[in-house]
Amino acid sequence: MEDNNTNIGEEIVTEILDNGLATAEEIEGCSQSEIDHIEQQCEVLLPEAYRSYHRHIGKSSGEFLRGYTCHYPRIIQEQAKAERVLQREDTATELDKHKFVFAGSQGVTFFYFDVREPDPPVYVIAEGHGDPDKVTDSFSEWLFETLARQT
């Protein structure tokens, strides 16, 4: 995996195809206007690593990420769902304007990062588990670790 955040999308597509998690026809990225729509609706400027992911697999990634709500346009709704979970938890954690929920699972587990970093650490919010936990040092690491667990 290269350190260049603009190549993360290309690298993950190669790994998805090489591991048989999707065919080329099952992979679809977002247009620039769709990425802009996410930013407008969520009122954030997304980090480059995440933008690269969306350019390459933002709409569909075959079997990769199955079970997660993370593709466009459904991702736009995950922030509000995560905020409701945090309200039910006994935690001081808030999803301020710099924290973006990029994936949800089953409506009770949510992954987020701070948008101010180009390839930010990933944290998880899980209903019934209190404060969020850091799960990886970067979004790209989260992608590749998730891929490794699915192969």
Rank of each mutant, 00 (worst) to 15 (best):
Lys81Val: 04
Thr91Met: 05
Phe110Ser: 02
Glu117Ala: 13
Asp90Ile: 11
His98Tyr: 13
Pro121Arg: 03
Phe110Pro: 02
Gln106Gly: 00
Arg84Lys: 15
Ile125Asp: 06
Val108Asn: 05
Gly128Asn: 13
Phe111Cys: 03
Asp90Gln: 12
Val122Thr: 13
Arg74Ser: 10
Tyr123Pro: 03
Val124Pro: 04
Val122Pro: 07
Asp114Asn: 14
Ala82Met: 04
Pro121Ser: 14
Asp96Gln: 03
Tyr112Gln: 04
His129Gln: 13
Glu83Thr: 07
Phe113Glu: 00
Asp96Ala: 04
Val108Gln: 05
Val108Thr: 10
Tyr112Lys: 03
Gly107Glu: 01
Gln87Phe: 10
Ala92Val: 09
Pro120Asn: 08
Ala92Pro: 01
Ala80Cys: 09
Pro118Asn: 11
Tyr112His: 07
Glu83Cys: 12
Phe111Val: 01
Gly128Ala: 12
Phe102Thr: 02
Val122Asp: 05
Asp96Phe: 01
Phe113Ile: 00
Lys97Val: 06
Val101Gln: 03
Phe102Cys: 14
Ser105Tyr: 09
Phe113Trp: 07
Gln77Trp: 12
Pro118Arg: 10
Lys97Asn: 14
Glu83Met: 13
Glu127Pro: 05
Asp96Val: 06
Gly130Glu: 13
Glu83His: 07
Asp90Asn: 15
Gly128Cys: 14
Gly107Val: 07
Val124Glu: 15
